[in-house]
C-alpha cells in the first residue's frame, strides 16, 4: 500500500501550498512544521476535504483527486477527535464498523471497554482520541491521517498515548501521516519526518538525518538546533574540512561542500561540557555561562566564548550540571566533537 503524491498544489488567497512530491509507503511519516505552514492543507487534500488546483494523489494505484471523501478509503483523526456528540463511544465506533466484532476488537486493542457507553462529553481528552482512532480504524482504511491528535492533551497523557500509538502504528500495514508541530512527537513516532515550511516540503528523511543533518537553517532551528554559525572552509585535512568561524578554527568530518562559506550546525545535545583546563585541545573552546534554563529532564546552558563573540547552547544532563557546578557566571570548557558538526552550504 503506497500513497503517491505528485505536483500537488493549492492556493488560498496569499497562501500557496506546493507543488509537493511525496511518497509514503507502509510507514509512519511525521509531518512537522509550524502552524500555518500547510500541514493540515496536506491532510485535507488527501482526505478530500479540499480539492487541489493541480497534481495527483494515488493510493494503492487508485487516483483520489476528484473523488468525494467517502470514496477514498482514507481515514482521518481530527485534532479534537470530532466525535459525534449525540452518540455514545460505542455508537460512534459502530457508525463506522461493518460488524459488532470489529467494535469489540478495537475496544479491546485501545482499552475502551469501560467507557463505551459514555457520551463524548463524559470522556477525558485521551479517551476521546482513542475512541476517534478506533472509529477511524473500524473502517479499515487504506491510509491513516492524524491531525495533531495529541496537541490538546496534558503532557503525561500525551506521553502515554504516544507510546500506545507507537505500538499501534507498527501493527498497521498502511501509510500513516501524522501531522504535528512538536518535534518530540515527530521523532518518537515517525519512521521518517517531513518538514513543512510555507507550503513546501523543506526536508524529508529519517528522524536522525533531519535532526543531525538539517538541510537548511529553518530545519535546524525548528528541530531545536539553535547553534548556527556562519563560517568559511579554510583547509582540507584527511579527516575532513576545517572551518573557521571568526577566530575559531574547528575540525569537521565533512568531506566536501559545494561552497566556500557554510553554516556550521551543532546540535546542543552533541556538545560536551568540561571543567575549564589550561590546554586547549582540538575543537575545544573556553567560555562563561551566561544563561541557564532548567527544562526538566535537562538544562539548556548558554556559553559565551572568550575568544570570539559567539554564544553556544548546550543541553546538559542534571548530574553534569551538579558535578561541574554550572550556574550563571561559571567558567566552562566546551568540546565539539568533529563528527557532530554539520555544514549547511551557504
Amino acid at each position: 500500500m503506497t500513497l503517491d503524491i505528485s505536483g500537488l498544489s493549492k492556493t488560498y488567497g496569499e497562501f500557496a501550498f506546493g507543488p509537493v512530491e511525496l511518497t509514503v509507503g507502509e510507514e509512519v511519516l511525521a509531518v512537522l512544521g509550524p502552524s500555518g505552514s500547510g500541514k493540515t492543507t496536506l491532510l485535507s487534500l488527501i482526505a478530500g476535504i479540499t480539492s487541489p488546483d493541480s497534481g495527483a494523489i494515488r493510493l494503492h494505484g487508485r487516483d483520489l483527486v476528484g473523488r468525494p471523501p467517502e470514496a477514498r478509503r482514507v481515514g482521518i483523526v481530527f485534532q479534537e477527535g470530532a466525535l459525534f456528540p449525540h452518540m455514545t463511544a460505542r455508537e460512534n465506533i459502530e457508525y463506522a464498523a461493518e460488524t459488532a466484532e470489529r467494535v469489540e476488537e478495537l475496544a479491546a486493542v485501545l482499552e475502551l471497554d469501560d467507557v463505551l457507553e459514555r457520551r463524548p462529553t463524559a470522556l477525558s481528552g485521551g479517551e476521546r482520541q482513542r475512541v476517534a482512532l478506533a472509529r477511524t480504524l473500524a473502517t479499515e482504511p487504506d491510509a491513516l491521517l492524524l491531525d495533531e491528535p495529541l496537541s490538546s492533551l496534558d503532557a503525561p497523557i500525551q506521553k502515554r498515548l504516544r507510546e500506545e500509538l507507537h505500538g499501534l502504528f507498527a501493527s498497521l500495514a498502511i501509510p500513516v501521516l501524522y501531522v504535528t508541530h512538536d518535534q518530540r512527537t515527530a521523532t518518537a513516532l515517525g519512521d521518517r519526518i517531513a518538514i513543512v515550511r510555507d507550503g513546501d516540503l523543506e526536508q524529508v528523511g529519517t528522524p536522525s538525518a533531519v535532526l543531525d543533518r538539517p538541510a537548511s537553517r529553518f530545519v535546524a532551528r525548528f528541530t531545536g538546533n539553535e547553534n548556527l554559525f556562519e563560517g568559511r572552509a579554510v583547509d582540507r585535512t584527511p579527516d575532513g574540512l576545517r572551518i573557521e568561524i571568526d577566530d575559531l578554527d574547528l575540525q569537521t568530518t565533512v568531506t566536501d561542500i559545494p561552497t566556500q562559506t557554510a553554516t556550521a550546525c551543532i546540535h546542543p545535545s552533541r556538545v560536551i561540557v568540561e571543567a575549564p583546563g589550561d590546554s586547549e585541545a582540538e575543537n575545544t573552546v573556553t567560555g562563561t555561562v551566561v544563561h541557564r534554563l532548567n527544562e526538566g529532564g535537562e538544562y539548556q546552558i548558554d556559553i559565551q566564548f572568550d575568544r570570539v563573540d559567539r554564544t553556544l547552547t548546550a543541553s546538559v544532563r542534571p548530574p553534569t550540571v551538579e558535578r561541574l557546578s554550572i550556574e550563571t557566571g561559571a567558567r566552562l570548557r566546551v568540546r565539539i566533537p568533529p563528527e557532530s558538526i554539520h555544514l549547511i552550504p551557504a
Partner: peptide
C-alpha cells in the same frame, strides 16, 4: 454543527 463532524462522517465512507 461543526463541519469537521461532517467531514469525519464522510471520511468513514458515509455519503452526504
Amino acid at each position: 454543527v461543526d463541519r469537521t463532524l461532517e467531514y469525519a462522517s464522510r471520511s468513514l465512507g458515509k455519503s452526504r
